[in-house]
Design a protein around this nucleic acid. Structure first.
Lengths: 163, 163
DNA sequence: ATTGAAATGGATCAGGG
DNA sequence: CCCTGATCCATTTCAAT
């Protein structure tokens, strides 16, 4: 990942549909080179895909929630099964498998609070393998499109050690 | 949003770089029509953008966490300022503004647990306006690319009322 | 690893159903 | 609102550096 790769990645995260020519000109290389670099980023698994993003409000899903769940039994199999089954629901935006008091956190977006209630009560709380189902309403969710490599050292201001 | 719009949205969420021709053939309309439909989806705000997605592991950021924070004062201004300031950090993958005991939940991805420690202690816990900073490690995070409209009624199996 | 040029194929628009 | 067909332009390949 040299500076050119980083610039390409940054620009494609911002706009995944810009033409290869624009991209090449913006980063100062020939179109054929830009194409090869971009392909290499894909081949190395740095770029996993290019996706259109839909606005959840525009889809009539203006109510968002995070639902924490403990899975029983607390085995790898049960937790992975829960993760996949929850991720497959059309209401689901994301699933986190986490440490702490809960095992998974499900981010969902639904049309209304009535829908939210039915979803939680009828589809989650009823399952014997999901216990301690707790709902947190999400007022707002922002997700920066640009994800970059990080400098090795995270402390921009003030380290633990001084020497 | 008729069936054609939904099919277009679904396919562009899966692959935002497929050609307009492929798209048109897949959904069974002419390329010019597909172009117009796609533009309309953008114009209506259903499609907000097309973005390349980077693999956090490949970026050397294999350690993820969710950090819950209470904001003080608990005013709109303070919470929105915190949200924007947290979203602007290069470590941040997403920020949730939530109900409950905490005000915001920050999803971050960093290179190591040492980095995580420094980030939490030096960059968050030091701020007087962030109180009750709690870290949950994320073992796994999945986010389905496809987000669709939902049927008006969420209870696929078993309703509260019967008649 | 990068480039320039040639050919293949897609985006786009006008005109008509 | 949708399609057909023509033009223009981007993508892609490849030989050479």
């Amino acid at each position: 990942m040299d500076a050119v790769d980083q610039a390409i990645l940054r620009r494609l995260q911002r706009d995944g549909r810009q033409t290869n020519r624009e991209l090449a000109e913006a980063v100062g290389i020939a179109p054929s080179t830009a194409l090869e670099r971009t392909r290499a980023l894909r081949a190395r698994g740095v770029i996993t895909g290019v996706h259109a993003v839909a606005d959840l409000e525009a889809l009539g899903r203006g109510v968002q929630a995070l639902i924490s769940i403990r899975i029983r039994p607390q085995s790898r199999e049960a937790i992975e099964a829960a993760r996949d089954s929850l991720a497959a629901l059309p209401e689901t935006v994301g699933v986190f498998v986490v440490t702490g008091n809960e095992d998974v956190l499900v981010h969902i977006a639904v049309p209304s609070t009535a829908y939210l209630r039915d979803f939680v009560l009828d589809r989650l709380a009823r399952r014997k393998e999901y216990v301690d189902v707790r709902t947190i309403v999400v007022y707002d969710h922002v997700a920066p499109a640009e994800q970059t490599e990080l400098p090795a050292d995270g402390s921009a201001s003030g380290r633990t050690s001084r020497g």
